[in-house]
Nucleic acid binder design. Structure first.
Lengths: 254, 254
DNA sequence: GCAATTAAGCGTATGGCATACGCAGAAGGA
DNA sequence: TCCTTCTGCGTATGCCATACGCTTAATTGC
């Protein structure tokens, strides 16, 4: 008996197989009354409307008119549902951007697209990473990002590192944004009220002798003026892509 | 009656006042049997030992030999406790680095120090941000970071943006690292087992025709080789500081 | 010394959560 | 017709945050 693939290769995690539609149904037994895609869609809609905290197994089931435990016929644990929700929330990535010298506009467009997706589904960044990306849409996003870096002279390992850095930046920005929004909603103040107040509070609490640099920032009025919601994102993205550009230039001229 | 500070200035949030030690105790009534600092220390120790999920009000109280509701005499809600825990976990920042041309080594040291603090207390990045930093240690970290940028020609607003970008990078790296560790612990596999497996799984699931760039990465063996745990952090930090350097040079030569 | 005041510690109750387990019944194959 | 297999689901367990109000300790004003 020759070795089969099943013995030489690691098995696909069940949730990955499900995401790629590789589950085969046994012919016997009653027809399923629900579908995995329907469960995921209901959970995504619920998270969009009421936040990730509202996504409990019983609540999703109620939304579908089913009992809580019925969901466990489709998903072995809540973690699996979350993984599938994230993949669905990402959806189709933007088309591959230009390669070669256009890498920068391509990657910038990719980053803005991820940001837009995370603004549509802010709860995505609250779902703990369960491992490196293996689900269909996640891999498509990675693929299209990597394509922007073709012809830049970067090594394959460097390309992956750039993508990791970029998606990390976008995700962190989205996490910060939603956390600030939630905190301001919880405190009942609007964000444009909070920032000027913040400057005053820091000034009150931070002794100028011990916090001189901070005091200069406050005196410059940085904390009082409001900037457009995109300004901070643009700044960070520009720095980050500048850093990548420095590396690419070094690889090209070397 | 002339306007007092209390009328013209926003009030300090209670948790901020507590963190700066500004709570005055009424002389009457029984002596407190617990201290805020003691509660925070117990909660930090518990989070270090068993993770943030283990930090429930009843569990912290049990650790202190008190009843659950006793804690609510010191903290108005769990969120307040979490805020104080984070501040305690950061602790003293590294001394201010050199200014002027040494900004880069100073900021790099700052970033490594924050990373070290987050490795000591991985749960910190799981605590939702409740607002801009106002607690003592948080402000000290910000202060010492800003000092590195003195004499670089950056505007005050740009200095703040750089610090936001840098701390975001470090925190995101820490979040990713702990999530991967937790996921690998939950699956019972070691991380150095997972990565080679991951390459094989991607290869199995990703059609080379549809995922050419991804396939190149896999074929280069990027996903199979393990790099030192710091390599990825070094790469991102270098790119990020390169990007800041580009900006500083533009401000200097202009 | 005594009464009034104030805050500390805490017992109880509420409503929600994930999910292990096992049963009833449906669908198809033999 | 009977047997296998799978679906839907009811129940039970042990957690969680925290609102409310009682008892009691420590102090002040008389």
């Amino acid at each position: 008996m020759e070795p089969t693939d099943d013995e030489t290769r690691p098995a696909l995690p069940p949730v990955v197989a499900a995401a790629w539609g590789l589950r085969e149904r046994a012919p016997k037994g009653p027809r399923p009354g629900l579908t995995l895609a329907g469960i995921v869609a209901a959970a995504v809609a619920l998270a969009d409307a009421e936040g990730l905290a509202a996504v409990s197994m019983s609540r999703v089931a109620k939304e579908l008119g089913a009992a809580t435990m019925a969901l466990y016929r489709y998903v072995s644990a809540k973690d699996e549902l979350l993984t599938l929700m994230v993949d669905a929330a990402y959806g189709e990535p933007p088309g591959p951007g230009g390669t070669g010298p256009q890498w920068r506009t391509g990657l910038a467009g990719w980053a803005w697209a991820e940001r837009a997706a995370l603004q549509r589904h802010p709860w995505v960044v609250r779902v703990p990473i369960s491992g490196p990306p293996l689900t269909p849409y996640s891999l498509s996003w990675l693929e299209n990002g990597l394509r922007c870096l073709a012809g830049t002279g970067l090594g394959e390992s460097e390309k992956m590192s750039v993508m990791l850095l970029l998606t990390g930046y976008v995700r962190n920005d989205a996490l910060l944004t939603t956390q600030i929004q939630e905190a301001s909603a919880a405190s009942g103040r609007r964000i444009d009220e909070i920032m000027p107040e913040y400057g005053q509070l820091v000034a009150r609490v931070a002794d100028p002798a011990r916090f001189p640099a901070l005091r200069e920032v406050i005196d410059a009025g940085v904390l009082s003026q409001e900037d457009g919601p995109d300004d901070e994102f643009v700044f960070g993205l520009d720095r980050l892509l500048d850093g990548v550009e420095t590396l690419i230039r070094a690889r090209t001229t070397a």
